[in-house]
C-alpha cells in the first residue's frame, strides 16, 4: 500500500512537471510534424514508394510516432540528472520508500508524457492521409505505452551513470540518434546489407516501430506478436536494471 502510494506520488510529480513546461509539449508535437510534412513530402516526391498506400509520408508516420516516444522517454529519464543537480533527488532518495517504487513511479510518469504526445500525433493522422479505426488507435496507444516504459527505463539507466548534463551531447550522438536511424523509422528494414540488418535487429526501437507500422498500416517486417513480445521483454529488463542501479548506486546518486 505504502509502495503504491510512493509510486503514485513520484508519478504525480513527473506528470505535473510535464504539464507545467508548456513549451516542451509544443516542441514535442511540432518537431515530428516538421519531419512528416517537410521530410516526408520532400523525400516522398523523390522516391517511388508503391508498397504503402499513401506513399512515403504514410510509411514514416509510425516511425515518427516511435521517434517522439524515443526522444520524450529518454530525455524524461535524463531529467533525473537535473533532479540530482538541483538537489531534489535527495529528497526522494532519502524517503523511506523502496528504490523499485521510485523507479516505477518515474517510469510511469515518463510513459504518461510519452503516451500523451503519441496520442496527439495519432489524432493528427489525417495529415498524412492515414485513417484510423478506434481499435487501431487504442492498440497503437498500448504499444506506445509499452515502448515508453522500456525507453524511459533506458533513460533512467543512462542517467544513473551520468553526472551532469554535459554528457547530454554524447548521449544524443551515441545513443538516441543511432537508435532512431537504426529503427526502420525512415526506411524499410528488409533487404538491407547484412551489417546494417544486424544493427537494426539489436535495436529495441525497431520492434516498437514495426509493431506500430503493423497496427497502423497493416504492414510489417515481423509478426506483431514477436514485436510486442520483444518490447515487453525490453521494458521488463530496463525497469529491473534501473531499479537495481538505483538501489546499488543510491549513495553516489545523492
Amino acid at each position: 500500500m505504502a509502495e503504491l502510494e510512493g509510486i503514485y506520488t513520484i508519478w504525480l510529480r513527473e506528470t505535473k512537471r510535464f504539464f507545467r513546461y508548456k513549451s516542451r509539449i509544443v516542441t514535442s508535437v511540432v518537431t515530428p510534424l516538421l519531419w512528416l510534412i517537410i521530410f516526408g513530402t520532400g523525400l516522398g516526391a523523390a522516391v517511388r514508394f508503391g508498397a504503402t498506400a499513401g506513399g512515403y509520408k504514410a510509411f514514416i508516420y509510425p516511425g515518427i510516432v516511435g521517434q517522439t516516444i524515443l526522444f520524450t522517454s529518454i530525455f524524461s529519464g535524463l531529467s533525473v540528472i537535473m533532479d540530482r543537480q538541483y538537489g531534489f533527488l535527495k529528497e526522494i532518495l532519502v524517503a523511506p520508500i523502496s528504490r523499485p517504487a521510485i523507479v516505477m513511479g518515474k517510469a510511469l510518469g515518463i510513459s504518461t508524457a510519452a503516451v500523451i504526445q503519441a496520442t496527439i500525433l495519432l489524432l493528427l493522422s489525417f495529415i498524412v492521409g492515414v485513417s484510423m479505426s478506434p481499435l487501431v488507435f487504442i492498440s497503437a496507444m498500448i504499444v506506445s505505452l509499452i515502448m515508453s516504459v522500456g525507453l524511459g527505463g533506458l533513460g533512467l539507466v543512462i542517467a544513473a551513470f551520468t553526472d551532469s548534463m554535459e554528457g547530454f551531447n554524447l548521449i544524443m550522438s551515441f545513443i538516441v540518434l543511432p537508435m532512431f536511424l537504426l529503427s526502420g523509422a525512415l526506411f524499410p528494414i528488409t533487404g538491407l546489407p547484412s551489417w546494417l540488418q544486424a544493427a537494426v535487429y539489436v535495436n529495441p526501437l525497431t520492434y516498437g516501430v514495426d509493431a506500430l507500422r503493423s497496427i497502423i498500416l497493416n504492414q510489417s517486417a515481423l509478426p506483431l506478436g514477436i514485436d510486442v513480445l520483444a518490447i515487453i521483454i525490453f521494458a521488463l529488463i530496463m525497469i529491473f536494471v534501473a531499479a537495481l542501479l538505483f538501489s546499488k548506486k543510491e549513495q553516489s546518486l545523492m
Binding site: E5, K16, R17, Y86, F88, E91, I92, A95, P96
Partner: peptide, 26 residues
C-alpha cells in the same frame, strides 16, 4: 532532514512539496 544545498523543485508550489513529502513518509 534539511540538506545544506537546496532540495526543492522550482516548478512545484510550497503546498505541493508538503503534500508530496507527507505521502512519501506515509
Amino acid at each position: 532532514i534539511v540538506f545544506q544545498s537546496r532540495a526543492l523543485d522550482d516548478i512545484l508550489t510550497g503546498r505541493e512539496h508538503l503534500e508530496m513529502h507527507a505521502s512519501l513518509y506515509g
